[in-house]
């Protein structure tokens, strides 16, 4: 299995498109950082809305490394699935289109092992991608903008997390994001198993994510009640839960707390169920598949 994983990793990381995702992310984050360096205060004023009329706020402190990283994650984690699909959608169908899948299936390893090795190799890629995001968006942002308290805007209010209570939340948030991206990888893998070319699974995965995200965000009661609870996109924003801090009745934040941990655990569990179901389906289909290419 280890050898198989190494081979799959070699295949993923020798393709130029794999590094395209890293380059896109670096360029995107750099543009955000540059923009916030120039117009960060204006952006913060917009985010805090009418609060500016009631309160005196030191905007120079608000635009700090933690806030920049939070902003980057808000924008980026919606789009990272596309970059995940770019690689995961190709792992099986890419070999089918190149004609190497038959050779692979002829090796003395089970088809289950092949699929699991491909999925694990995709997991390594996803992990590397998120690590890259963490390094650029968090480490570099802290180096450029400095550390300070993090202000998180919600629909009905604002919360302030002290600087020394933020970092661990990022570790868990990135951990959660990894699980969420692995669901996307599992969808792509399943579609890749069913396809003979790479474009189909990649486009289909992106399409599924767009449709599901739109339904998740639409405030239409019938969707909210009957469809939304079953969509994986509903649970993908769970990483944000680590930045919703608990508080007393007076609104005083409780350091080291999470406002609603059960909600995060539920989201994580739902995503794990999706992963198991999708990867099992991929294994099942691949085992039954007539490999003709």
């Amino acid at each position: 299995m280890w050898n198989l994983l190494q081979i799959e990793l070699f295949k993923i990381f020798k393709k130029p498109r794999t590094y395209l995702a890293f380059a896109i992310i670096a360029a995107f984050i750099f543009l955000i950082q540059l923009g916030l360096l120039v117009n960060g205060k204006d952006w913060m004023k917009f985010m805090l809305g009418s609060l500016d009329e009631t309160m005196n706020i030191d905007y120079s402190k608000l635009v700090n490394g933690y806030a920049v990283c939070f902003f980057v994650l808000n924008l980026l984690l919606v789009h990272v699935p596309i970059l995940v699909a770019l690689v995961a959608g190709d792992v099986v169908s890419g070999e089918a289109s190149m004609g190497t899948l038959r050779l692979l299936a002829a090796k003395p390893v089970s088809r289950t092992q092949i699929i699991l090795a491909k999925y694990l190799a995709t997991a390594v890629y996803v992990f590397a991608l998120l690590l890259w995001i963490a390094v650029i968006s968090l480490v570099i942002s802290i180096a450029v903008f400095g550390e300070n308290d993090l202000v998180v805007a919600k629909t009905n209010g604002l919360q302030l997390i002290e600087a020394n209570d933020v970092l661990w939340r990022y570790f868990f948030a990135f951990g959660f994001a990894f699980i969420a991206m692995m669901v996307v990888a599992a969808i792509s893998l399943l579609l890749s198993v069913m396809s003979e070319n790479s474009i189909g699974p990649i486009v289909a995965t992106v399409g599924i994510i767009i449709v599901c995200t739109l339904i998740s965000e639409m405030e239409i009661p019938i969707y909210q009640k009957y469809i939304k609870p079953y969509l994986f996109t509903t649970y993908m924003l769970g990483w944000k839960g680590f930045f919703y801090i608990g508080s007393t009745e007076d609104g005083e934040t409780i350091k080291g707390s999470i406002q609603y941990l059960p909600g995060i655990i539920k989201s994580m569990a739902a995503l794990m169920v999706y992963i198991v179901a999708l990867v099992s389906a991929a294994v099942f289909i691949f085992r039954k598949k007539d490999i003709l290419s």
Partner: peptide, 13 residues
Amino acid sequence: YKMPKGVTFDFED
């Protein structure tokens, strides 16, 4: 105080 949900993308916990 009110922010549009499309701006904050709240996680529904």
